[in-house]
Design a protein around this nucleic acid. Sequence first.
DNA 1: AAAGTCAAATTGTCCAGGACAAAACACGTC
DNA 2: GACGTGTTTTGTCCTGGACAATTTGACTTT
Lengths: 303, 303
Amino acid sequence: MNAPTPPEAAFSIAAVERDTGLAKDTLRVWERRYGFPAPTRDANGERLYPPEQVEKLRLIRRLIDHGRRPAGVVGASIDELASMLDSCLCPELASSGREDGLLQLVRLHRSVELNAALRQALMKQGLQRFVADTVAPLAAAVGEAWMRGEVEVPEEHLFTEQVQNVLRSAIGAHATPGGRPRVLLTTFPEEEHVLGLLMAEAMLVPEGVACLSLGTRTPLADIRSAAVGGAFDIVGLSFSIAYPARQAIDGLLELRALLPDSIAIWAGGAAVRDKHKRLPGIRVVGGLDDTLAALRDWRAEHP
Amino acid sequence: MNAPTPPEAAFSIAAVERDTGLAKDTLRVWERRYGFPAPTRDANGERLYPPEQVEKLRLIRRLIDHGRRPAGVVGASIDELASMLDSCLCPELASSGREDGLLQLVRLHRSVELNAALRQALMKQGLQRFVADTVAPLAAAVGEAWMRGEVEVPEEHLFTEQVQNVLRSAIGAHATPGGRPRVLLTTFPEEEHVLGLLMAEAMLVPEGVACLSLGTRTPLADIRSAAVGGAFDIVGLSFSIAYPARQAIDGLLELRALLPDSIAIWAGGAAVRDKHKRLPGIRVVGGLDDTLAALRDWRAEHP
DNA sequence: AAAGTCAAATTGTCCAGGACAAAACACGTC
DNA sequence: GACGTGTTTTGTCCTGGACAATTTGACTTT
């Protein structure tokens, strides 16, 4: 009655939806329009997607997230997709991860060494530089490698978990409960990436900011009640690259209308970068270092 | 083109799916069969669900998760639902949370006090008793309160985040990289509750076990490759109450077939409790204290 | 050359209503 | 109680059509 386990070596449409993030309706309409994917059928007439097609769909998904349009990528051959992929990756990112060796630790399942290396870097650099100079580039490198298909799900999970462990305990050590401003951090309901929030928190906490993270996926109305009820000065939202820009903008404007003017909204992440013009009343944070600039601005205006 | 923002005070079918966890198809078929929900339509003929109906759907969802069947709950009045709710809650749980006062801290948005109280309890009790005697009952109480509708999304997020922070830093302090056995912890792809994993890890790490958590939502094939590639002795899976029992059993048996006999499988959580008979070759862990019993058993067999 | 305007093409989501297998239930038997 | 067997309930999948939101691209105006 619930999503059936994919039998042997083929995936049901529900499994493909889960693995690729493409809605069932979208998968069916692509098949109708572009002739791809072209699943076989089981005895019951239901779609069965071979693993290669699922893999190709994942690739297509990544390209679309990077701005391509379906007409150009659905129906292209594997080789064409691979060359498109190369053209939208910046080579220096991948290499920066390789040079410092941390990406290798992610790749090779070396969780213990990865953890040790992260903690060592944290000690050496301090929390803020650790986040800006080590975690963020590493996250970008992992993202790139994942897009190239060079890392799999478990490596990505491993990386996220280990970074979370290190960041959460470091943030706990710096916590300044009575500080100002009071910042509420979370994401919109469709966004489940947590590292952006943790990185922002790690940048702010050493500055004496009182941060509260609600974790991911908070409904808009609940953000409002938490922000107002908790007397927060700033609400910080994080958007990963996969988040649809339009949705981010609509949501932010709606939230802006929901919150009193005395509460500032900060938005960061790839989906809102350069969208400053379309977001009146919202501080678009361009990167981790810009978080500190935003904080300086806020403090200048609130003596 | 993407999930539209719900206008004013009514929800699109996509928004309801997100908020309630009920698939669009299920919502449409309930409407056809039971006459509920009964959304209005917009100018375009698309369903618009009023907030009361969404709230009622959430209630129904909870009752179904606790074993009721749709025929009995979809179409019942609010009062009937409320009385059903009472009959499937165990009163002592809610009260245990109230007595120690921690649940109050969750309710009132007192994040700072909650964090302090958790850390204090941790110091006093030690990691294992803290998890078994404080975190687990509190999690159960929050679950009950959520089911009664007495806590909202942000409170639940707040609770999860704060507990995560405390547990992760405590686990980090206890870490014993070279220990035995080597345990890999994760959940199946449909399961996103992380606290069960963290509690298990917190029970095991002080015993000198080398734990690696992959976080939630790991595909079966990836669990296999991580377990074999990392030379793990045990794979631990966690299932929350909302996880369909049948799916858990199928998945576990499939994983059992995938893994060599030398790697043990432990399964814990409400969804697999009392399913021991249907899970040959798998150690069903009945609760947090049973985790330690399972560990003792394993060590007795692997001198 | 930059910026605005507007029609055409693209694209994701929604709808209806039928079908069916898996799960839960009820009941009789060992 | 444990175990088959028939019945009902229930979630998911299917087809093919429709449409609004977006993007594209050609054209006009500053």
